[in-house]
Design a protein around this nucleic acid. Structure first.
Lengths: 213, 213
DNA sequence: TGCAAAAGTAGCCTGAGTGCAATATAGCTC
DNA sequence: GAGCTATATTGCACTCAGGCTACTTTTGCA
C-alpha cells in the first residue's frame, strides 16, 4: 500500500467527484426532476449501475455535499475551549459563519450557491431528504453533549434537537430570503439579530419570552 | 345536496377507508417494502390508478393516519383557556396523553399499535416521511403562537421548532422503548419524568441545565 | 328521463433502483 | 513479471412507483 492512499482510493474519489459535478451541473441547468440519472451517468462517462454504487439514491447526488456539515455542531461542541459552554461555542461558530457569509448559514447570494438553494428548496424530494440531515446532526450533537459536556443522557437527548432545530430555522430562513432576492449584505444585520434571538431563547428558555410557565 | 354529506362524499370516504385498511393489513403482514401498491389495490378492489388519486404516494397509505395530529400542537395552543400559557397547555395535554396511553405519545403497547410503531420505525421511507409531519406541525404551531399567543413573528418561528422537536423526541423515545419490548405501564413513570424534564428545559432554558451562557 | 360533473378504469410509458453474472483492474506474492 | 485475489465496473433484465390520456360509469340535479 502507498504512503497514504492507493491508486484505487484516488481513482474512486475522482470518479465520485466527476459524477457529482456532472449531476449538479445538469440539475442546475434543467432541474432535478427533469434529468434522469442515466443522463448524469452518460455525462460522467460511467455506467448507470456504477453511479448507483456511489450514490444509492438520486437525491444523494445533491445532498452529499452537505454531509460534511452533518456532524458540524457536534464537532464544535466537542472541540470547544475549556470553560466555554456548548451554547456559547455554537453561537460564536454560527455568528462567525454569518460574518463570513458561509453558505451553510443560508446567508450567501453567490449565483451558484443561490441556484443550489433554489434547487433544494424548490424540489420536494430534496427538501425532504435534507430533513434526514437534521436527524443525523441531532444525533451527533447529542453524543457530543453527553460525552464531552457531561450532560445527563436525557438532557442531551432533549437539548440536542432543540438546538439543531433552531440552527436549521435560522439557516433555512436566511436561505429563503436569499431565494426571494434579498442581498446577503443587506440581510446580514437582521440575520445576526435573529441568531442572537434564537440563542437567547435556547439559553434563557421560552418562559422569558412569555410563552411558558 | 343532502343535509350533510351526499352519497358521493360518503362513498369516497368509504373507498378511502377500504384502501387504507387493506394497505395497513397487508403491510403489517408482509412488510411495507414487500407489498406492491398493485396488491393493495387488488385487495381493496379498486384500480391502481384510483388508489393513487386517494394516496398520491405509497407512504401516504400509512402516514395519513397521523395527519390529524399534524396540527394538534397548534390547536392545543389556540384552544387553551385564558391565562394559560402555551407551554403549560402543551405540557398538560401531553401528560394527559401519557396517562391515557395515547398512541401519539409513543407510550402504547397494544399489539396493533406496536406493530405500527415497528413498521414505521423499521422502514426508512416511512420514517423519512414522518419528518415531513414535523415540518407541518411546526408551521401550525408557529401560526398559533403568532396569532393567538401574541408572540412576535421571529419568536414564534424560533420557539415552534424547539417545542415540536422536544415533543417528537419524547414520543419517538417512548415508541423506541415499546419496540424494544418494554411495557407501557412500567415505562409510564419514566415517560412522565422525561416529559417534565423536556418541558422544564423548554421553559427554563438550557443555561439552567449547564449547557449555555 | 336526461345531462353535466365527478369518480373510476384500462393501458401505456418513464424512470428509479436491484440482482446477477461477466469482465477488468489494482495491488500483493513468489 | 506472471499470476492470484479482492475490488470496481459493466450490461442486462426485471420490479415497481407514479404520471398521462382517453374511455366508461355513476351521482346529483333538473
Amino acid at each position: 500500500m502507498n504512503e497514504q492512499e492507493g491508486l484505487r482510493e484516488r481513482k474512486k474519489r475522482r470518479t465520485r467527484e466527476t459524477i457529482s459535478e456532472a449531476a449538479i451541473a445538469l440539475f442546475l441547468e434543467k432541474g432535478f426532476d427533469q434529468v434522469p440519472v442515466a443522463e448524469v451517468a452518460d455525462r460522467a462517462e460511467v455506467s448507470r449501475r456504477t453511479l448507483f454504487t456511489y450514490f444509492p439514491k438520486k437525491e444523494d447526488l445533491v445532498v452529499h455535499r452537505f454531509a460534511d456539515h452533518e456532524t458540524e455542531a457536534g464537532r464544535v461542541v466537542a472541540a470547544r475551549q475549556d470553560g466555554v459552554s456548548p451554547l456559547r461555542a455554537l453561537r460564536e461558530h454560527f455568528l462567525d459563519g454569518l460574518s463570513r457569509h458561509d453558505p451553510i448559514t443560508g446567508l450567501n447570494d453567490r449565483p451558484d450557491i443561490l441556484a443550489l438553494y433554489r434547487m433544494v428548496g424548490g424540489t420536494p424530494a430534496l427538501a425532504a431528504r435534507m430533513q434526514q440531515y437534521n436527524v443525523n446532526a441531532t444525533q451527533a450533537l447529542a453524543d457530543a453533549l453527553r460525552d464531552t459536556a457531561g450532560s445527563p443522557a436525557l438532557t442531551a437527548e432533549l437539548a440536542a434537537p432543540q438546538i439543531i432545530s433552531v440552527l436549521w430555522t435560522l439557516q433555512s430562513t436566511n436561505a429563503a430570503l436569499m431565494r426571494a432576492g434579498e442581498r446577503a449584505d443587506d440581510r446580514y444585520p437582521h440575520a445576526v439579530e435573529a441568531a442572537e434571538h434564537g440563542f437567547a431563547l435556547l439559553a434563557g428558555g421560552l418562559s422569558a419570552a412569555g410563552l411558558g410557565g
